[in-house]
């Protein structure tokens, strides 16, 4: 019978399908604002779809997640082998703000073969949000490799453009003052997820730093939990960005006068706004924690972070002491 007004939680149970591959890109950057923004403002900025809620959590760290937007695509997909594969469907994009400070914008889609060999009416694709159906057979490994190696300028499915546009929308918001406390790079994480198979153990990960802004991650997991996998990738991208940003700031600080006590004061904004954001695997479904742990073992994110953090703290303490003594000496000699 019909029920009254109650709520349901998402509980879809598809069988993991080895013929599917999930593709995504996450962009991470510093929010273009002079201070960390409060939750309510983050909510207003992320209100991208009329009538849909921004999801807010306070613990263990303030996190605001926009509703998901859908975009239609009908195009070629990049394949490593160069095979011509066409697909039609929808891509999901969303944005988030963590700690009132870091913005992330992401785009993702699950790609799988269609039953029909021609394009179906658009209503068919709209009923399958975040799914792209290809005409003809696909090799998931070929598609995953093609996506990972896709050049910026290509005529294939462009998740990069979708995530960039989302990023630009948030960063261009009229609610922001566009006077950030420091200059930082935006990073991109391109990721793929293929289904776990008998030969390929669960959670197998390959993470790579391709250049100073591009990272890639290749996972094996259950595709039916793709929204959770996307969250995992966003979380990973966030931590990679924190680490890269801190390294960048240290490099810049040392570029001038490496030992001057004032120099280190330039690291204050970093200390104030970034250090407390380190919160690995926050808001990540428990079932995916092993993936994060595997990454930690190989890439050693937390180890490096802690080392950097300690170094900055030491320098700040040191320079505070030096400055103090400069001040006292100065006043004594007057």
């Amino acid at each position: 019978m019909t029920s009254g007004t109650s709520s349901v939680h998402r509980a879809t149970t598809h069988r993991p399908d080895p013929g599917l591959v999930a593709l995504g890109e996450v962009r991470t950057g510093l929010l273009q604002h002079s201070a960390a923004i409060p939750h309510q403002l983050a909510e207003r900025i992320l209100q991208l779809v009329p009538g849909e809620r921004v999801r807010l959590s306070q613990r263990p760290i303030a996190h605001a997640l926009s509703p998901e937007l859908m975009a239609g695509v009908d195009c070629r997909l990049a394949a490593a082998s160069g095979t011509h594969i066409d697909g039609t469907g929808t891509v999901l994009t969303r944005a988030s703000i963590t700690g009132g400070t870091v913005v992330q914008a992401s785009a993702r889609a699950v790609v799988g073969p269609a039953r029909a060999d021609h394009r179906l009416p658009w209503s068919h694709y709209m009923a399958r949000p975040g799914m792209i159906e290809t005409r003809g057979k696909i090799e998931v490994d070929d598609l995953a490799a093609g996506f990972i190696g896709q050049p910026t300028s290509s005529s294939a499915l462009d998740l990069s453009a979708l995530s960039r546009r989302m990023m630009d929308v948030i960063q261009g918001s009229s609610q922001l003052d566009h006077a950030p406390r420091m200059r930082t790079k935006r990073t991109r994480l391109r990721w793929t997820a293929r289904t776990v198979t008998a030969e390929q153990p669960h959670g197998l990960v390959e993470f790579a730093i391709e250049d100073d802004v591009l990272r890639t991650l290749q996972l094996r997991t259950k595709i039916d939990r793709i929204a959770m996998v996307a969250s995992l990738c966003e979380n990973l991208a966030l931590h990679d960005w924190l680490l890269s940003t801190l390294l960048e700031l240290i490099e810049r600080e040392q570029r001038g006068a490496p030992h001057a006590p004032q120099a280190v004061l330039r690291l204050r904004p970093a200390i104030d706004s970034l250090l407390h954001l380190w919160m690995p695997a926050a808001h990540i479904d428990e079932s995916l924690h092993p993936v994060w742990e595997a990454l930690e073992r190989r890439a050693g994110f937390t180890r490096q972070w802690e080392q950097l953090r300690d170094r900055i703290r030491d320098q700040v303490t040191l320079s505070a002491v030096t400055l103090m003594s400069v001040v006292t000496e100065g006043s004594a000699s007057e």
Binding site: A71, V73, D74, C75, V91
Partner: peptide, 26 residues
């Protein structure tokens, strides 16, 4: 108090023409 027409307009996802890669907005 719900702006229904606007709500639906905000949920339109245009049927993509061939070669819509996501590069440009529809």
């Amino acid at each position: 108090q719900v702006p229904l027409a606007q709500l639906v307009e905000g949920h339109l996802v245009p049927d993509p023409a061939p070669n819509s890669t996501g590069l440009r907005p529809a």
